[in-house]
Design a protein around this nucleic acid. Structure first.
Lengths: 197, 197, 197, 197
DNA sequence: TATGAATGAGCATTCATTCAT
DNA sequence: TATGAATGAATGCTCATTCAT
């Protein structure tokens, strides 16, 4: 058993996933070689292919983890017992905070999705759509009940906000002037202000 | 001699650039081979290396073209003789329209920037910063003169809007329900509404 | 314990041998992975290496089975109490029928022999030589007693016939116009006709 | 130009083909690595893939050469101006001689055909069929004109003979007691004797 | 101004085998 | 008697780049 978990007791698959996440974010999927991943994880190639079917599989796993986390959090905020403007604001801010806290995952997500195999791409897209739709439902609810302006189609509003989330990995620096929470509050505020009737 | 421009009279370097742009956008920089580029352009490898120092150079040229175009247009709108809210709205809408009209360039821009060599990356970043600053100056002008809310730092406002521009290549489809101009008007509207005092 | 024989009561080594035979015939020795064999046999790699020393060993066992079977049958026909032309005809036809009935073994035999390790190759060759010699003795007996022509060296006659047996796996199809017995009769007939003085 | 033909003036593609032929015959297709081929030919892998699309392609080229040669020779003998029994005897003997003279090609042919990709396999099979049919036509002509026995279907007769040709690479040794021509005469004689009415 | 043969390093993946349990 | 995680070496193939012509 000692073989499975030499450095620090973390099981091999997790070690591989962590190494891959860091490297994919650092240099991109195509620029990261399987050799570099296994070296960073302290195992051999054979071990990687024992647990993952392909390099592509590794990327897919990274996506899966992020998607599940974000969907859970969105569901929690959207289902909360609060006025819709509060629920939208909370959800909009939360996705900013968790994105900043997992900037590696985020940059991989937005930069490497086109490296997935067609079938995996399809699966990821469908999960993302579900996420998008849950968020859009919040906007539509507010529009129906008159607390949000109906000047802009809800779909566009959602893409507007997620564009800025997507963009975070391009400009946000942990040593910058704003904490993740401050950025989140500002961006959620911009969204809510744009939606004022 | 006319040998440089066999198919259709377009000079070889332009043909190469056009082919590279299309292919980089289609399959990404790393997934596009030099061989594919020269085949698409109807020339041989030697010709490519006669005009461009490297594959990386080709990417840099694509960036240069886009950056110059966008900077020129932004300068024109920002220098116009109109109230600041009008100038910002026009600039914000224009960048959306030209991005949609050059979605290939845009996807390359946002997805392949990390493939540039360090020195070229530095150069591109500095040009982008100049662009960002010009846009921010418009926001700040409006904040100073009281027509825009000062609730959000101008930098963040700019990143908010450019996130949505960046995001266009992810979701915009030419056969979708909205024309480029309609999308542009909506996104500019969201920006201006968010900035209402 | 009954654990050795879960599916259908067949013991593990036989199950492995049967799976290997089918797969080696289907895709060749080199194209068949140990993993595929154990999966087809419903066991794990450890089990295979418990019973067989190596992949090469498995191939050797397949050969052994075929060689023993064919030698036994040839001996029976050659030792029979009948005129030599009858005994040769029966033996010649029988090897055709049993080869067709075990086409898998046959294709492995003729296509994969060069995959054996030197020592096993030597052993197989010596067993085959014994088989060849028994068959040749029949031809020589007929030549000595004047019922067969002596125009062709007996060795060559044997190789002539076994060439056609060898060739069966290339062209014989179970759904073709001839039954195994008909093919066998024709080929034995050709041999005997060629040997007419 | 000196780069193309360092050792002995032979162009690179021919050098590669010769090396591949020898190695495929020696150790089989699967046991021969691309690395070994290029080392034997004195070039690098890149050069091989400049001329051949894949390892499989190399095998296909070997086949092509043999098939063309044999078809030409068969056509020449079959079209000759001589009685049909002479033409069949000459063709039957010639294929034995040329097979012995190119035993490398022959062993590759009969042992490695199943390594071809489906489409190339199809092509080779169709060329082989054409060869088989030309040969069969000679047998049928003799049967129609009464000089050959009709006891055996012509197809089977052809397979009987080609089985022995196929088999040559298994047993023929240049240092054995028989010259290629002697073997050829004996095998052709066996065929013709078997066909006596 | 262009060709295209050749390089050489790198790539993802496969696989027979071992061994602690 | 059997497991299955892990190894490590090898495999076929790709590709940006160079350079004699």
């Amino acid at each position: 058993m000692a073989r499975t978990t030499e450095p620090g007791g973390t099981p091999v698959p997790q070690r591989l996933l962590a190494a891959a996440t860091r490297l994919f974010a650092e240099r991109g999927y195509d620029r990261t070689s399987v050799q570099e991943i296994v070296e960073a994880a302290g195992v051999t190639k054979g071990a990687l292919y024992h647990y993952f079917g392909s390099k592509d599989d590794l990327l897919h796993e990274v996506y899966g983890r992020v998607l599940r986390l974000q969907q859970e959090r969105l569901d929690a905020f959207a289902d909360a017992d609060a006025p819709v403007e509060q629920r939208l604001r909370d959800a909009a801010a939360d996705v900013v905070v968790t994105t900043i806290e997992n900037l590696d995952d985020a940059s991989i997500f937005f930069r490497s999705m086109h490296h997935l195999s067609p079938e995996k791409d399809k699966q990821v897209r469908s999960e993302r759509r579900r996420y998008h739709e849950r968020f859009r439902a919040l906007v539509e609810e507010g529009q129906r009940t008159g607390v949000f302006s109906t000047a802009t189609p809800a779909d566009l509003v959602v893409d507007y906000h997620f564009g800025s989330v997507h963009h975070l990995s391009t400009w946000y620096r942990p040593d910058g002037p704003l904490t993740p929470q401050e950025v989140a509050d500002h961006l959620a505020d911009l969204l809510l202000r744009a939606l004022r009737p």
